[in-house]
């Protein structure tokens, strides 16, 4: 019985999320577009996450470089570190880590903000004033993430690769030319496509999950608390799941471009 109810709720959530995404797309076109809100969110979501993403990239890049330089040295091929870094960072770590960090930082905030507006009838008040809350609240956050997450991912990639370089040159004693030429070898069209498509998918997940959970909050303050914790968990799990699905379904078709 319990399983059946859980499954029903799951199906309901998927259905609700899908309808919500469709609405968000529909309200993305046409007027009014809340530009000021959009700029605020770009600043808050983007600039506000910059430091976090730089730290993440730096430490993750250095850790990976350390691990692989030792492993590769055993095979006498430590000069290949640049290749490993290109693949690991551009394809996987950059996009996934950036998305997870941004999700942790912003998705609970988005859900809590919208959820508490819902529970105090502020969303109803907005609609009573002839303003569509999805257009006003969800759409600006969605597009701000769609623009800022890819930018943050590029920054994270860059910092991680520089971090790897520092480890390569000063700890593993690889020559700078060997690191860079091996790295450039693997910056292929395929890897670039994989690395740039992912952040858009992840931005869509963070925005739609966190906004949807905010809008579907019920049950007062307790409900807001519940959907806020759900929000971080659901966006993170979905990011990891979509990352896997993408790697499984799309990446094989890009083999020719690597």
């Amino acid at each position: 019985m319990g399983h059946l109810r859980g499954f029903k709720r799951f199906v309901n959530d998927i259905q609700g999320l899908t309808f919500f995404c469709l609405k968000m797309f529909r309200y993305s076109v046409g007027r009014p577009f809340y530009f000021a809100e959009f700029m605020d969110q770009m600043y808050f979501l983007g600039v506000g996450s910059l430091f976090l993403v730089v730290l993440t990239g730096m430490f993750a890049g250095q850790a990976i470089a350390l691990q692989f330089s030792i492993e590769l040295a055993d095979f006498g091929s430590k000069n290949y570190l640049g290749r490993v870094m290109a693949i690991a960072i551009l394809r996987e770590l950059g996009p996934v880590l950036t998305a997870l960090m941004v999700a942790a930082r912003v998705s609970s905030g988005i859900t809590a903000e919208i959820g508490s507006m819902k529970s105090s009838e502020q969303l109803d008040a907005m609609r009573a004033f002839g303003v569509e809350p999805i257009r006003k609240l969800a759409v600006p956050r969605f597009w701000a993430l769609m623009i800022m997450l890819p930018v943050l991912t590029i920054i994270c990639d860059f910092v991680a690769i520089v971090g790897g370089y520092i480890v390569a040159v000063f700890i593993a004693h690889i020559s700078p030319t060997a690191y860079w030429s091996n790295f450039i070898d693997k910056v292929s069209l395929g890897n670039i496509i994989i690395g740039t498509v992912k952040p858009f998918l992840f931005a869509m997940i963070i925005a739609s999950v966190s906004c949807y959970l905010g809008f579907s909050t019920s049950g007062g303050t307790k409900g807001v608390g519940r959907s806020t914790t759900d929000s971080v968990v659901a966006s993170s799990i979905n990011i990891l799941f979509i990352n896997f699905a993408f790697t499984r379904l799309v990446v094989p078709h890009l083999r020719g471009l690597m």
């Binding site: 105090s120 009838e121 502020q122 008040a125 004033f129 002839g130």
Partner: peptide
């Protein structure tokens, strides 16, 4: 439709139970 309702609502003022002021 929601779009038409938005126009109708502009002629109405509603004071919600508990105020529902925009707290931000």
């Amino acid at each position: 439709r929601e779009g038409q309702l938005q126009k109708v609502r502009r002629k109405m003022g509603m004071v919600f139970q508990g105020g529902a002021l925009f707290d931000s």
